Simulated scan of single mutants.
Amino acid sequence: MLLTILGGCGAWPGAGQACSGYLVEHDGFRLLVDPGYATVPRLLERVTADRVDAVFVTHGHPDHCADLNPLLRARAWSDDPPAPLPVYAPPGALDAVLALDRPGMLTDAHVLREFTAGDRLDIGPFRARTRLLPHSVPNAGVRLTAGGRTLAYTGDSGPSPEVVELARGADLLLAEATYVDRVPESSRRSLSSALQAGRQAREADVPHLLLTHLQPGTDATAALAAAGTEHDGEIGIAAPGLAVDLS
């Protein structure tokens, strides 16, 4: 299983950056997870739009799904349009982004497969276990397993025992870490810090932690240090272009 980071900014893309977006590959199958703002140009540096096999969206905030629109446009307006793209998302999460174009324009470019957080899915070679994690809108964390390896991804989430259960024993945890160590009172149920991500990775016995969704301007070095006070395994930042081979 190969994970490639397309972007890892939270809320909006910083200069030269992109929001949440992750390409997960196994046995030639390409799964795009959370196509947030500015991720499609980075995706297209690696593969053409028709080579994406499926999309998984954790929740409906635009920094996690806005670039589904240009991806579908690229497929729909191709000289030889590919088969409809399977798109997995919680109910209603993609209503806004799918309404950006005139009715029917992108209908043949995708097939929407809505699921409820807690469902188990088969997406190509991936076995996907989803879990409802706390956020301001319904957010489905996901555990992807293929080839004997497991990647757990929180989407956006406040700290919760559910995150630990999602990640328990995984090879890698890709974890929300908007802040370094202190989360504002107004966001404590819906967003996390690097410190909390480190603690949850330790509790889940995950050897490799990648911090993602850092708000633009957040000190990455400070975030790594904060996570390291709780977790003594490998820790990194989900920086664009980073590729991690879980095998």
Results as ranks from 00 to 15, higher is better:
P90T: 15
P90Q: 14
A93K: 01
L94W: 12
D95L: 11
A96N: 06
A96R: 08
L98Y: 04
L100T: 13
L100S: 05
L100Y: 03
D101P: 08
R102A: 02
P103H: 06
G104R: 07
G104E: 08
M105D: 03
M105Y: 05
M105W: 07
M105Q: 03
A109V: 09
H110R: 01
H110K: 02
H110N: 01
L112Q: 00
R113P: 02
F115T: 05
T116S: 07
T116I: 06
A117F: 01
G118H: 02
D119V: 05
L121Y: 01
D122S: 14
G124P: 04
P125K: 06
R127V: 12
R129K: 10
L132Y: 02
L132F: 02
P134R: 04
P134L: 10
P134S: 08
H135V: 13
V137P: 12
V137N: 04
V137K: 11
N139H: 04
N139Y: 13
G141S: 12
V142C: 13
V142K: 08
A146Y: 09
A146C: 07
G147K: 14
G147M: 12
G148L: 12
R149S: 02
L151P: 00
L151E: 01
T154G: 08
D156E: 13
S157M: 09
S157G: 12
G158Q: 08
G158E: 03
P159I: 06
S160I: 11
S160G: 11
S160E: 10
P161V: 14
P161N: 07
P161S: 13
V164H: 03
E165H: 13
